[in-house]
Write a protein that binds this DNA or RNA. Structure first.
Lengths: 161, 161
DNA sequence: CGGCATCCTTAGGGATACTG
DNA sequence: CAGTATCCCTAAGGATGCCG
């Protein structure tokens, strides 16, 4: 019984191919701090304002300022001014497409935490608006099969010629 | 056009319910360092030995030692002695079930990095061993519908009575 | 409201050298 | 091979106070 993946093709020798281009490492360069991912979580929950991010994530303003700037620089959030009629100008941080596309990462973390770090399976739940059923993240192949980790082969990407 | 989720039920007031039990935050308490997730990546690639972890992740031995100890303490890896016939005793780190269950987190990070941080869609590929088709992580409801982020409602978990 | 400046502490991580 | 010890640097983050 092995839980590791099966490596195929030019991957076996492990000849240092990864350090340069591994996209997990690249993603972590942007997201490896706790505050960055929790700010993104808040953005999905609809938070848009500086003070709310700091308070709801539970971080100090200087940290919130630093992290929000980085996330804007990286293109995960967009900073916009807006003005409601009769009000003064405010700022808001909105998810960009790149930021919104991060949702599966947060769901994956939540699903793992729900299963392994909470005795009641986690405090919140995602449901499909149309049918009301719970939503989960699943590994699936292009042919539509649900796939277990043990059934996966890993190899270099084949460029479709 | 809004990319945030729709909050339902007792969730709207945002009354600080989250800080205590949010399982994303709990997961990040274990996994928020770059080296921890890269070590887990290596474990999925089949790495089992101390020196290989340090070298392939690209971290120093002291850091590898600290991180491996934490991951063993948290139950994501198991440290075992083994001896091949005629050889001396060696140590290895193996994925536990808890560790193996982290796979979707790494896939989610990889998928996001492939799309947004690499001009060629990422260096490696996951394929379903049975049918050879590429494997991706998808949001799906219990009724089998593929679900987009915009179609998800978030609410407190309802305990099935 | 939406920050920035300053100061401080801790954690992550590298380099080098050494041990069983 | 599988680490530990030591030293040092930088990044993450908290606390307080100030500013437009």
């Amino acid at each position: 019984m092995t839980t590791a993946l099966r490596l195929t093709g030019a991957l076996e020798p492990r000849s240092g191919w990864k350090a340069e281009r591994c996209t997990i490492a690249k993603a972590l360069a942007v997201l490896s701090t706790r505050s960055a991912l929790l700010i993104m979580r808040e953005a999905f929950y609809g938070t848009t304002r500086f003070d709310d991010f700091a308070e709801r994530v539970g971080i100090s303003e200087p940290v919130a300022a630093a992290r929000l700037r980085e996330l804007v620089d990286e293109g995960l959030l967009a900073r916009e001014d807006y003005r409601e009629p009769g009000q003064r100008t405010r700022q808001q941080y909105r998810l960009t497409e790149k930021g919104a596309d991060l949702f599966p990462v947060l769901v994956a973390l939540m699903q793992w935490g729900d299963r392994w770090l909470d005795d009641r399976g986690g405090p919140i739940e995602l449901r499909h608006r149309d049918c009301g059923e719970p939503v989960t993240l699943t590994l699936q192949c292009a042919a539509g099969h649900e796939v277990d980790t043990s059934e996966i082969d890993v190899g270099r990407r084949r460029r479709e010629a």
